[in-house]
């Protein structure tokens, strides 16, 4: 299993996705904040590289609300990443991605095809089908996937250049449910950008993902639903930086028996 960082350079240690160098390893969702102003302040505190957005049915009751939200997100300075959240088939996700490309003026898409409403787990078959179709159509696909190696292989061969395995089901705040599989994924795809997406509840979870060598973390609810979302956004940004630095510094291996850190030689009162 490789302990080497997957990217090189000290000050130049930057996340690169689809050839674009990004200023941070935090990807932040824009939903569930108490107000647009708190969203703005959270973004200013955490400086995420990417903000995720979605599209929903226009009721016509306030037809300028969507435009206002788009203008707010554009003003925050991060790259915009629309999602296909809630889509249950490849066809729905493909059409939604095409609509998102026009609406948000970007060919980047966070591809979600959901298998089950209780777990919100990815439908990996629909995901691979939609990923292939969208990649052929020129999209830069960031798939929300499981940590399964064969799924990862399929998505990469479909044209994805980044994978976003879940830590735990969306919104559960349970952290990394399967660190072993995530570590295997990291080792198996040392050169593919891997972003842990979903299920993160605490900055320590994000730090753990980064210490495993993941390239970034995508989260939303843990910040938006915190008592103080602005401070929590900053806490996540720092945890991600700390985890990355620790990964690059090289973590010591764990061991079963104690080992003294203070020198044993020269100890008094011993023969």
């Amino acid at each position: 299993m490789s302990e080497r960082p997957s990217t090189s350079g000290g000050a130049e240690d930057r996340l690169s996705l689809y050839g674009e160098v990004l200023p941070s390893r935090l990807l932040l969702g824009t939903a569930l904040y108490p107000s647009p102003d708190i969203l703005r302040r959270a973004v200013e505190a955490a400086r995420p590289a990417i903000l995720t957005v979605s599209l929903r049915r226009e009721s016509g009751r306030d037809a300028s609300a969507g435009q206002r939200f788009f203008e707010l997100v554009k003003s925050l300075g991060a790259r915009i990443l629309p999602n296909t959240a809630g889509c249950h088939t490849a066809r729905e996700a493909i059409t939604t991605a095409q609509m998102a490309r026009e609406l948000f003026e970007t060919d980047w898409i966070k591809l979600e095809v959901i298998a089950n409403d209780d777990t919100l787990q990815p439908d990996v078959f629909g995901l691979a089908e939609a990923a292939g179709a969208l990649a052929r159509d020129g999209f830069k696909v960031l798939p929300y996937c499981t940590e399964d190696l064969s799924v990862a292989e399929r998505l990469l061969s479909a044209g994805c250049q980044v994978l976003m395995p879940w830590a735990a089901p969306i919104g559960t705040a349970r952290g990394l449910m399967n660190p072993y599989a995530l570590r295997s994924l990291r080792a198996y795809f040392p050169d593919t950008p891997l972003i842990v997406d979903a299920g993160i509840g605490a900055p320590s979870h994000a730090a753990q993902a980064m210490e495993l060598g993941f390239d970034g973390v995508l989260l939303n609810t843990a910040v938006a639903k915190a008592g103080d979302p602005v401070s929590m956004a900053a806490a996540f940004a720092q945890a991600i930086e700390a985890g990355r630095l620790a990964y690059r510094a090289g973590l010591m291996p764990s061991r079963d028996m104690a080992s003294p850190s203070t020198p044993v030689a020269g100890l008094a009162f011993r023969d």
Partner: peptide
């Protein structure tokens, strides 16, 4: 017909 507009997302 579907008519969609920008919305918050995760």
């Amino acid at each position: 017909i579907e008519v969609l507009s920008p919305r918050q997302g995760g």
